[in-house]
Design a protein around this nucleic acid. Structure first.
Lengths: 153, 153
DNA sequence: CAATTAACCTACTTGGTCTATAGACTAAGG
DNA sequence: CCTTAGTCTATAGACCAAGTAGGTTAATTG
């Protein structure tokens, strides 16, 4: 499961991708529009800035902007920043060099071998999906839905 | 991340797959050989039995056996029993019909759409890998390693 | 320059879940 | 009927995600 932190991050980034006009957008606007606890969101945005996905501007007229185009920011990158990579066993996490206590020999641990395959599958999806993709898919789904609605009226 | 519970389950099942002679194997043997806390393992084995993966025999000469051949038990099934399916957002979990509070409209939630793809990718690996596969891969890795060892001697 | 705006930072609380343990109970075999 | 071995219920403790609070620093503007 991804954490709420990551979900909030993706929602906020999606909002930024859709509503960015070049001017910074306020934390409070993001929090309000996407129903995210204000203070919690702050911490998330800081992490994303440190991760290089966001730029910020302090003081009056300040706020947050995407650091690059939505089509260049992958969902995988966001997940990686907020969860330190997404894997299924400790010993496959990006940052961690540690060996799970369980698998005596990492090279021969069957679980590790299987989960490594799973991780590859996950990563390939996450790395190939960008913020732009995510927003677009959401839009398409919304349009299709309203089309069906029109039709039924 | 999969829980320790699931890891222990896979280890125990791997042991059963490798050492089953038709006779039941004791919880205490499994616990000892795979370094799993005895009482904790008990609970796991009960879950696996209820999930139809294991059979048990009570009383003297009792213990646990696989309910079917290792090649017919998928890792996905084990994960599903112990974690209620493995997905990345609540609203994609097998058992849960609940909608995440976050995505107002599940049909249009970009995160949900993306994560649904990820889930498909995960499931396709997990469902296509059996206990037999897992054990075999572990064996192959071990053999290769000892081959290299021999070579270097 | 001072007032205001808005991001930044540190620390804390809380609630829930994962892990593990204890002990009493039930079933089977000899 | 005694030993073996799985079954069930309850509980303790550690840990982490989620959320809260309040003060600090930086930029703009009048």
């Amino acid at each position: 499961m991804i954490s709420k932190k990551t979900k909030y991050a993706l929602k906020a980034l999606g909002y930024l991708a859709e509503h960015s006009t070049g001017d910074p957008i306020l934390i409070s606007e993001l929090a309000r529009e996407e129903n995210i606890p204000r203070k919690f969101l702050e911490a998330i945005l800081v992490a994303l800035r440190k991760g290089g996905v966001l730029k910020s501007k302090i003081g009056k007229g300040g706020g947050y902007m995407l650091a690059s185009l939505p089509a260049t920011i992958t969902v995988g990158r966001v997940v990686s920043i907020l969860e330190g990579g997404f894997s299924l066993v400790e010993c496959l996490n990006d940052n961690v060099k540690a060996v799970c206590e369980e698998c005596g020999d990492p090279a021969c641990c069957g679980i590790r071998l299987v989960m490594s395959d799973v991780k590859k599958a996950i990563d390939s999806v996450l790395e190939s999906t960008t913020l732009a993709d995510m927003v677009e898919r959401s839009d398409v789904a919304r349009q299709q839905k309203s089309k069906i609605m029109d039709f039924s009226i």
